[in-house]
Design a protein around this nucleic acid. Structure first.
Lengths: 249, 249
DNA sequence: TATATAAGTGTTATTTTTACACCTAAATAA
DNA sequence: TTATTTAGGTGTAAAAATAACACTTATATA
């Protein structure tokens, strides 16, 4: 009568939801391994015409001088996405930031201390808006993508994957605007896409394509900081974009 | 003197590797939550001109009649990728199968029983080669992609994401061949890409492009099963492909 | 008022993609 | 034996997308 619940049931996986209380208590189900799970967040920023990462430098032993991306541990009461948001907020003070999961990193010895799984995310932030006090507190610094220092563990691999995923996404979805201030010039936008794709773009062809996107709106503001002549400032209008969400740059 | 190791150290995450033994023992570090972690594998197969999924049907309570993808729990001694291979092997008897991680699913209540994180993978298998006895034992069946039954938990979301990722990957990497027998006709190949993209393709344009790919080699074998006339059989040559790995269909 | 600097603007050539219809080989039916 | 049926196999031209390319303009500063 209890027999139908023995371990001979030909079910490849028994979710806890499908277990009786007896089963949950039984040794067979109790011996499932449990894991520490971390979140690691690759934070992209754009300034002075270059892509940067916000990295933490350890100024104490051990591993003094090594760098890492911002991380934290997953808590029992929060989803993975929420935990990633918490970790990002802890360092930058920012909320409602564009984030995407990169994937789970699960090599046994990726953390040489104890086994820790890590869920990597990337975030795109506007470099003008983060909390500089917090960043100072964590000894974090903006580092140019092209001259990254040695990173701990598999953080280089995370960065590499995040960078690739970001590039692919940025080509078909208007996520790049998260890296810019609300108002930007076309030269800034072009330079942003040049560093995202890591290739130069033709100015006239670029502007032609931008011109066809109704949701990139010219404002009457002029930016005088970048040139003597001054450049028209533009804005991304997400309401207009959502009416016909097509993007290709 | 012990002071530098207190929890006031301004480090956002302390990896176990960076902890002293004292720290690991301390309550602050011991209270990190640990999680059950599952692997779920979305298995694609191609036959009778349609994409199929290998799904498990529960023929016992609870949730009798509901379906799921193949899954299993992560063990302490294996990497996530290895665990995914183990899970796939357990159901199909196959090794060295093309697999890709889809991502981590981490909503708190995704499993209504107890919290379980799940790392989703997808696999592409040649439908002629799996172990039918094992599949029968697990009560698994091939189900057509266009008429999927209700699935447990967030498995529909996993399938959706796996499907999308597979489609994108298949357009720029020669992964589709994993779904075909070693020798195949151009009609079979075209039909495969039609179901992957979910759109019809022009026969002449398709063959023109295939013809430009030196690593899709014509053999002297003729397939007589699909037509009266018989069709030339082709083979994917990965050695040739790797000399100049470009693919676009 | 001359100079330096980034902003701004159209046209043409090239490449890529799409559209499109008939003949062929072999099995099967008449 | 001949006709019919069926999937296999083949090339060209139009259309669309992409890439190449150079000069004028507005303004601050020398």
């Amino acid at each position: 009568m209890e027999k139908e619940y023995t371990v001979d049931i030909p079910a490849p996986k028994i979710s806890p939801a499908f277990l009786t209380q007896e089963q949950k208590m039984a040794p067979f189900y109790n011996d499932k391994d449990r894991f520490l799970v971390a979140l690691d967040c690759v934070i992209f920023g754009f300034y002075e015409g270059e892509l940067h990462l916000l990295l933490l430098k350890r100024n104490f032993e051990p591993a003094k001088g090594k760098w890492s991306v911002m991380g934290g541990f997953l808590h029992a009461g929060e989803s993975a996405d929420d935990a990633a948001k918490r970790v990002l907020h802890k360092l930058t003070g920012l909320q409602d930031v564009y984030m995407e999961q990169v994937g789970l990193f699960g090599e046994i010895n990726r953390d040489p201390g104890e086994r820790v799984l890590s869920i990597a995310y990337y975030a795109l932030i506007n470099i003008n808006e983060y909390d500089r006090e917090l960043v100072k507190k964590y000894n974090a610094h903006w580092v140019e993508m092209h001259s990254l220092p040695p990173l701990i563990f598999d953080h280089h691999e995370m960065v590499r994957k995040a960078r690739k995923q970001m590039r692919i996404k940025a080509s078909t979805a208007p996520i790049g605007f998260n890296l810019l201030p609300e108002l930007f010039t076309l030269s800034q936008l072009q330079r942003l896409y040049e560093v995202i794709y890591d290739e130069t773009l033709d100015k006239r062809n670029f502007r032609k394509r931008v011109n066809d996107m109704d949701y990139i709106e010219k404002t009457d503001k002029i930016d005088k900081t970048g040139s003597k002549r001054g450049a028209a400032m533009y804005r991304f209008n997400d309401k207009v974009y959502l009416k016909d969400p097509k993007f290709k740059l």
